[in-house]
Design a protein around this nucleic acid. Sequence first.
DNA 1: GGAGAATGGTCAAGCCGCTTGTCTACCCGG
DNA 2: CCGGGTAGACAAGCGGCTTGACCATTCTCC
Lengths: 148, 148
Amino acid sequence: MSDPVNGEPLVVVLLEHAMHRVRAELYALSDASFPGLRTRHYRLLSLLPPGGERLTRLTAASGLTKQALAQALAPLQAGGYVEVVPDPSDRRARLVRLTDRGREATAAVRHRLAAVEREWAAQVGEERYAVARAVLTDLAPGPVTVGE
Amino acid sequence: MSDPVNGEPLVVVLLEHAMHRVRAELYALSDASFPGLRTRHYRLLSLLPPGGERLTRLTAASGLTKQALAQALAPLQAGGYVEVVPDPSDRRARLVRLTDRGREATAAVRHRLAAVEREWAAQVGEERYAVARAVLTDLAPGPVTVGE
DNA sequence: GGAGAATGGTCAAGCCGCTTGTCTACCCGG
DNA sequence: CCGGGTAGACAAGCGGCTTGACCATTCTCC
């Protein structure tokens, strides 16, 4: 995964490794408690505001097409993580809303990822890790206000 | 992409954003100079040691199956980025070797990614970025010695 | 208030990247 | 020289996404 020729590894490789670690953790979480859920499902769940959200607005937040999103949503609905109800204010639209089980899943994700971060912090030092996280946060775009 | 409910964004989201930025840069590079090459192709190229390498050993380094790898290698071979020659020491095996054009591509990647990193450093501060990168490096596994 | 455009969502087909399974060619240890 | 292991190719299939077409409803504006 690193570069045998040149000295320092490519950023992309470093990022990929961290992603890989995180994904492994999420898969373990799925195996243990939420069978069938993939990384994108957890991300989707974490995007849902309390009052529910329309599919179209989720596409903007998630960067997926509405078709892809609908497809990703199907297992979530089937598993009882979200419920899809008609939007009272627009008969074309449907609201996607977290269920209790969905909230359970998002809480579990936070918990699990927090554990990974604690582990990382222990490995590289609390302060250094804090800096790294802050840097990544700074590099990320401003919060996407999906919940208005 | 961020979380509207809870405070701090998930690590996975932060990492994904950085990855996304990097990938965008690589795509731009492909459009400009190396049409058809995707992120995995650049990574593959950067894995190749000077003397060439066998497909099977690359699978270990890349984490892909040999079939996936062979598939990813095809466009590289077609584009003249690598050449595949029989291994003199084992008639079953074939050596994948960088061509000049391949070396050109890897150099371009390094250049381009270095530019992104300079940009990031300017945005968050040289020292903070240096810490972040060092942390990511520490978290990555020891160098995979693909070139023996 | 009615026609036309815009929006929310679904259905269907297809592509791409990867997987598993199977096969041949070759190496190596007895 | 024979059996097991390894290098790699071939084929089929699948998951996740895309584009394209379509229907239902709502908005806009004359």
